[in-house]
Design a protein around this nucleic acid. Structure first.
Lengths: 111, 111
DNA sequence: AATATTTATCGCAATATTACGATTAATTTG
DNA sequence: CAAATTAATCGTAATATTGCGATAAATATT
């Protein structure tokens, strides 16, 4: 089928999975890191920095936007992309929730 | 194409993306959380807990194993799956590296 | 107005993911 | 040994992802 059965999972599980999906490609991690440098928060610069075709980078940006991790504001011909700090905070929170729930096992000898 | 151009990215970016990919499905997060409960660390139990078909759960377990996040030991007919604490520690480390590198932007006003 | 620049989108191809029924392989129980 | 249990694998179908060239849409420059 290829489509997730969402009704089986909690909101936390679904949200975290969505964030993880956004991070599940090295190009998108590279983009986030580039954007955090602030002086290159424009798609064209990202293209040369990252080494993928313009269309491909644009697609990765779209994914990151969909996850809410970045936002873009149009500045003339260009678009200024930047990281959404709120989303980053939320991501950290969801990750902490996960790690907390996995805590018990990490401390014990399971197998 | 559908295959990542790995040579463009750093080891950190590739490793983190691989971990994120493993977490990029709510079923796999659910599995990790179930496994951390320790008393249900067997595929059969996971199937009833999670509500997906046995083949599907087995496939998700395979993904988690591939990422190194879990390990399975055969116990007779059954398999005892459990979380790999070392991998969890590594994952946390890679995530911290990411968040550190994104720090500058989160504090400033980007857009 | 014509040209250049920049980014999004379209269309396509290759591959990957998700899901499940059926089957297989292994072990355990009767 | 036969039947039952358990988990992996196979085969298949539907859908998603990745990548890129080409094109479109918008703004800027000449």
């Amino acid at each position: 089928m290829g489509a997730t059965k969402e009704q089986l999972f909690t909101d936390h599980q679904t949200r975290l999975a969505a964030y993880a999906k956004a991070l599940a490609h090295p190009a998108r991690i590279a983009i986030l890191q580039q954007l955090s440098k602030l002086d290159s928060c424009v798609c064209g610069d990202l293209v040369t920095d990252i080494g993928l075709a313009q269309a491909t980078v644009s697609q990765h940006l779209k994914e990151l936007k969909k996850a809410g991790l970045i936002q873009g504001t149009i500045e003339g011909v260009r678009v200024c992309y930047c990281i959404n700090p709120e989303a980053l905070t939320l991501l950290k929170k969801e990750l902490n929730l996960l790690f907390d729930s996995l805590q018990s096992c990490a401390s014990d000898e399971c197998c």
